[in-house]
Nucleic acid binder design. Structure first.
Lengths: 230, 230
DNA sequence: GCCAACGATGTTGTGTACAAATCAGCACCA
DNA sequence: TGGTGCTGATTTGTACACAACATCGTTGGC
């Protein structure tokens, strides 16, 4: 695949993955190849190429004669993914780190501002978008492409589930506000580390926050189970 | 995709990947969809599904109107992949390690025997196969599926290039014998660590050997350049 | 009333014809 | 002689028709 075909493929792939991650396509939702083909003004063939990749990467599951559904993940599998994500997070500062220039530093400062705004006007959607933008900004700090690719996979796989449970339908407004608060701290800490060029610290801070984020998620899941049993 | 279709897909995918890794399909070789379709007694459609995945994972590159070629990798990209692989190697002993039972210990002992045999009758092909079998045996020591998946990707991506340069056409018989010697030491050390259940040590030993393996590769590459400039 | 068999409907998987693109060879001309 | 454009062959990308399969409602028997 090359040229125009490749470009279209990437466009559709990225868009669908984003819809899945932002819960526009929530876990369990059924997609129809023909609908997508119509939306992107093409036939089923190129669409199936995209869906195949999304299935290989674990976002979708196609069943012959039924449909293709957005996957959900049980807490046990999610823990495995998170454990690996924690380890990879730290590598940002270790594998081919890119010393941030002034533009990069400004970008992190801007993130912090956007985050502070969000504290005043909490919104699940805006939070999800900001979280994603921040992740991609972080990825610019390393030049190690395999690390970027794997981190992206782990991020999208975990974040959509985390978002669903922590700040989606399942979560209260309190938890949303609380999570935004934690996120503001993370962004502040990392922005500070970036400002003085301490990329190894960036990795360590990120690692700590990813780990804590999952710990909170597990704690809430445990409480739900407890509450349900009464 | 499900049921029989899935099984066939996995079968063809695994087989083609193995052919690529064992250099039956060396870098630069051109594959034809129709030939493969005929070999596996099907149409181009399911074959294209497999090739698409192999392309997404970086083993192949399809170009409209030309063909699909097995990729090669420059030493710079390879270094990035190796750096990450070194880090992930150690995680085998840290993320959901599985205490080896007697069968597992025996399997490692068998590996050591096979390796000792190989020292007497060196063969590039047998070495490649043994190396691959050993990798898969190592992977049974962790239950972390994402770690398994990523390790596999990095292994296949690096090993085929390493094999080509270290023990393939580019390498002398001396380097092959030398590499087999190093490999025997690695297998011995790891088998010993497994025998006493020290999985954390397994990870550290593996990490060290992966790193040294790449160091040797780079050294040889440097010497070649030097030799060529005279 | 209940259950089983069956058919209608909808969806993904496969086969195939055709479109689009690249490349090698060759004729042709400056 | 060198370059330039054309044509045919080859190969991947796309569209579409059909096969395989699952689901659900219906209908008939008991």
């Amino acid at each position: 695949m090359t040229g125009e075909a490749r470009a279209r493929f990437e466009r559709i792939y990225t868009l669908l993955r984003e819809r899945i991650c932002l819960l526009d396509y929530p876990p369990g939702m059924r997609l129809r190849e023909e609908d997508l083909a119509e939306e992107f003004d093409t036939s089923r063939t190129p669409i199936r190429r995209v869906l195949a990749r999304l299935e290989d990467e674990g976002y979708l599951r196609s069943v012959h004669g039924v449909g293709t559904m957005v996957t959900d993940i049980d807490i046990a599998s999610l823990e495995q993914v998170y454990r690996l994500r924690v380890e990879l997070s730290e590598l940002i500062g270790k594998l081919s780190p890119v010393p941030p220039d002034e533009d990069a530093k400004r970008a992190f400062a801007t993130m912090k501002s956007r985050c502070e705004e969000l504290v005043g006007t909490p919104s699940q959607r805006a939070f999800a978008q900001l979280n994603m933008d921040f992740f991609h900004l972080l990825m610019t700090l390393t030049e190690n492409e395999p690390l970027q690719e794997f981190s992206e996979r782990l991020y999208y796989q975990t974040t959509r589930i985390w978002l669903k449970r922590a700040a989606g339908e399942d979560g209260t407004e309190e938890t949303l506000a609380s999570e935004i608060g934690f996120f503001l701290r993370e962004v502040s800490d990392i922005a500070a580390a970036v400002a003085c060029g301490a990329l190894e610290s960036v990795g360590q801070i990120r690692r700590a926050h990813v780990a804590m984020s999952f710990a909170r998620l597990k704690k809430r899941a445990g409480e739900e189970v407890e509450a349900a049993s009464f």
